[in-house]
C-alpha cells in the first residue's frame, strides 16, 4: 500500500504538468466553475430590467473614479488637437459666419411657423397628450467617463448621468454629428451606452427615413458591417425616392426611438438579396472618437411622464 503511494507520487512528478491539471479534484472544480459561469452569462444575457444594488454601486463608484482620469486626459488630447487644427481656423470661421447668417434668416421663419403651429393646434383642439408628444426633446449634457477598449463585441462607454438625472434605458445618446448609441443599463449616478455599431439582427432595428422626404421614404437600420464600417438599411420599397447622398434620420415609427435624429448618409443603393425590396449602404454620421461630452435625448412623453401622472 505504502509502496504503491510512493511509486504513484514518483510517477506524478514525472508526468507533464498539464496532465496533472486533469487530476480529479481540479477537474471537478473546473467543471463546477464552468457551469457556474455559463449559468451567470445565461442569466445576465436576458432582457434584465433593473440592476442589483451591488452592480449599481460598483458601476457608480468606478465611473466616478474613471472620470478623474478621463477629464484631464481628454483636455490634454483636445489641446493637441486644437493646436494641429490652428491653421484651419480662418476657413472654419468663414464657414461659421455663413452658417450664422443662414441661421438668423431661418430663425425668423421658424418663429413665424411656430406661432402658426400653436394657433392651428388650438384650432384643431389637440388633447394634452398630443401636445405633450409634439413638445421638443430635452437634451441632457453628459460627460464620458470611460470607453471599453478590451472587447470588440461589446463596444460601450460610460457616462456620468444616471436614473437620478432622469435617464432611462433605451434613450438615444447623440454627439453633435449624429446618433452615437443607446442607453443600455442605468445606475443611480451613471449609465452605460451601447454604441450603435453593436446593432445586429437580434437587437431592435431602428425605423428610419430620409430628411426632407419624411413621408415618402421608409427603411430599417438592422445591422452594422464591421469590415466596411457602414450600416445596412433594409426594407426600402422599389419606388422609394431615396438617393445617394441623402441624409438618413430616425423616423420615430414604432415609438421606441424618437424621430429626427441624424444617423448617416447614403453611399449606395442596391437591390436586396431577395429582389423584392432595396437596401442601402449608410455611412455613419458620428464615427468613433474620444468624445468628451455627449447628449442624452429625453423624449417629452418619457422623461416627465411620471410627473404628469402625478398632476
Amino acid at each position: 500500500m505504502c509502496m504503491n503511494k510512493v511509486t504513484k507520487r514518483h510517477y506524478d512528478e514525472k508526468v507533464l504538468t498539464l496532465f496533472k491539471l486533469l487530476g480529479n479534484k481540479r477537474l471537478f472544480i473546473l467543471m463546477l466553475g464552468l457551469i457556474l459561469f455559463i449559468a451567470l452569462m445565461g442569466f445576465s444575457l436576458g432582457n434584465r430590467g433593473k440592476l442589483t444594488w451591488a452592480e449599481k454601486f460598483v458601476h457608480d463608484t468606478s465611473s466616478f473614479v474613471q472620470q478623474v482620469f478621463y477629464r484631464p486626459t481628454a483636455a490634454v488630447s483636445a489641446f493637441f488637437e486644437n493646436v494641429s487644427n490652428l491653421s484651419e481656423t480662418y476657413e472654419e470661421n468663414e464657414r461659421l459666419k455663413t452658417a450664422y447668417a443662414h441661421y438668423i434668416r431661418d430663425k425668423a421663419e421658424y418663429n413665424r411657423v411656430k406661432a402658426d403651429n400653436e394657433r392651428y393646434k388650438k384650432l384643431l383642439e389637440f388633447t394634452e397628450h398630443q401636445k405633450a408628444q409634439n413638445r421638443p426633446y430635452e437634451y441632457r449634457i453628459a460627460q464620458v467617463t470611460g470607453l471599453n477598449v478590451a472587447d470588440p463585441f461589446n463596444q460601450s462607454l460610460n457616462i456620468n448621468l444616471g436614473s437620478k438625472n432622469g435617464v432611462q434605458k433605451g434613450m438615444p445618446v447623440i454627439a453633435v454629428e449624429g446618433v452615437v448609441g443607446v442607453i443600455s443599463h442605468v445606475s443611480e449616478f451613471s449609465s452605460s451606452v451601447q454604441l450603435l455599431t453593436n446593432i445586429d439582427e437580434k437587437s431592435r432595428a431602428i425605423a428610419v427615413t430620409v430628411q426632407g422626404k419624411e413621408n415618402k421614404s421608409f427603411g430599417m437600420i438592422e445591422s452594422y458591417d464591421h469590415s466596411n464600417n457602414t450600416f445596412l438599411m433594409t426594407r426600402i420599397e422599389e419606388n422609394d425616392p431615396l438617393d445617394e447622398g441623402d441624409v438618413i434620420v430616425s423616423s420615430g415609427l414604432g415609438g421606441k426611438f424618437p424621430a429626427g435624429l441624424i444617423i448617416g448618409k447614403v453611399i449606395k443603393r442596391q437591390v436586396g438579396d431577395i429582389g423584392l425590396t432595396h437596401t442601402a449602404v449608410i455611412e455613419p454620421a458620428a464615427t468613433y472618437q474620444d468624445w468628451r461630452e455627449l447628449f442624452v435625448v429625453i423624449p417629452p412623453n418619457k422623461g416627465n411622464s411620471s410627473q404628469e401622472n402625478g398632476q
Binding site: L40, L51, H59, G146, S156
Partner: peptide
Amino acid sequence: IVYYGQIIGPH
C-alpha cells in the same frame, strides 16, 4: 460589471 453590455462573466 463596469462595461456591462450584453452578458456578465466572460472576462
